[in-house]
């Protein structure tokens, strides 16, 4: 780090390839992932077996889809606290329409998608129009959706869950696409893992190789400056909120098809886990910096710890401790990186 302080004349000292690697946002997460893997793998043979890997990749996948979308939004300078409950809303719509209103599963999914995107659009519109902090706006959405999820479910079923999706038309096909498994070398992996890889790849391409990616970094880094050079800042942010909503729909549908029933309180509290995974992956809370791959890796760390602690026979409470420690370490590492990268004039 001290290398950055060396300045000759009015120019930064030559930094070279090492520094460029060091300021990659996902570096800390990669190191963390290797360390966590090494720890659990050395303690538990099951953990490092193909079946074990398939086991911990599954929670990593469903969390990862959300974490990647949330990371894009955070790079764009905003938060979405309603993302977790929205997975529940999407799942509830799917199951309710398919089991109580005779919808085909595919049609019910489409309806869930429309609602989810509308929620994302509304979040984005309110945030960009009012300039209120998205933390507050989406906290409002979070509470409203939480109320709707419970209220509507109770009104329709008289209980706090809807189930019986298996009997609905079109279930087999949809379940195969979103909740099935794939055999690789005799081990079955959840198909959600594939979705997660696709989402991460697309997000990375958009961030690094598309014009929109440039705009996302810019609106998160300095929205006014971005607008001044002609970046459509509001549209970019609204699209990001809709992307998070899309991810919530995808995860909500995967979960609903997998378990064939949905609890009305599902997803509550998950919104912070998404943010934690994105931060572990190198996203700055202040926006303008981060990576999709980093968030995906943050989700892997989460998945490994979640299952690894079980494999070791530890009390699951230790997971929370672990999560807190990771978050703190990651935030400290990120701050160093940011200072290093930002090193402004003296």
């Amino acid at each position: 780090m001290t290398g950055a302080q060396v300045r000759t004349d009015d120019r930064t000292a030559d930094v070279g390839a090492v520094r460029r690697l060091l300021i990659r946002p996902e570096l800390g997460a990669v190191v963390g992932m290797v360390a966590v893997f090494a720890f659990f793998a050395s303690q538990s043979p099951v953990f490092r077996s193909p079946a074990g890997i398939a086991n911990w990749l599954d929670p990593a996948a469903t969390l990862g889809i959300m974490a990647v979308a949330v990371a894009l939004l955070m790079i764009g300078g905003e938060f979405d606290l309603s993302a977790g409950v929205l997975t529940g809303t999407s799942g509830l719509i799917l199951v309710t329409l398919a089991t109580r209103f005779g919808f085909n599963v595919w049609a019910a999914m489409l309806a869930g998608l429309v609602v989810a995107l509308a929620v994302g659009f509304a979040n984005g519109m309110v945030v960009t129009r009012t300039r209120l902090p998205s933390f507050i706006v989406t906290l409002g959405t979070f509470l409203m959706l939480q109320g709707i999820n419970l209220g509507v479910t109770k009104a329709i079923t008289g209980t706090v869950q809807v189930g019986g999706l298996r009997r609905a038309d079109g279930f087999e096909g949809a379940a195969a696409v979103f909740a099935g498994t794939i055999e690789i070398g005799g081990t079955s992996f959840r198909v959600a893992i594939l979705w997660w890889v696709v989402v991460t790849a697309v997000a990375t391409w958009v961030l690094m190789r598309s014009r929109v990616g440039n705009w996302i970094f810019a609106v998160g880094g300095n929205e006014q400056a971005a607008r001044n050079v002609g970046v459509p800042a509001a549209r970019t942010k609204i699209a990001l909120f809709m992307t998070t909503a899309f991810a919530a729909w995808l995860v909500g549908s995967i979960m609903a098809l997998r378990y064939t029933s949905v609890q009305a309180n599902i997803g509550i509290g998950q919104e912070f886990i998404y943010i934690i995974a994105a931060v572990i992956g190198g996203c700055l809370l202040t926006g303008g910096y981060g990576s999709a791959v980093g968030a995906a890796i943050g989700a892997v760390i989460f998945g490994m710890a979640d299952k690894g602690i079980v494999f070791l026979g530890w009390d699951a409470d230790w997971f929370k401790f672990f999560l807190g420690a990771m978050l703190l370490l990651a935030t400290l590492a990120n701050r160093l990186v940011r200072r290093y990268a930002e090193e402004v004039r003296h």
């Binding site: 705009w215 970094f217 810019a218 880094g221 300095n222 910096y289 930002e342 402004v344």
Partner: peptide, 15 residues
């Protein structure tokens, strides 16, 4: 300019 973005990304930002 946007400090955390590279020179070339800033150079072409918006165009």
């Amino acid at each position: 300019m946007i400090p955390l973005m590279s020179v070339w990304r800033n150079f072409f930002l918006g165009s």
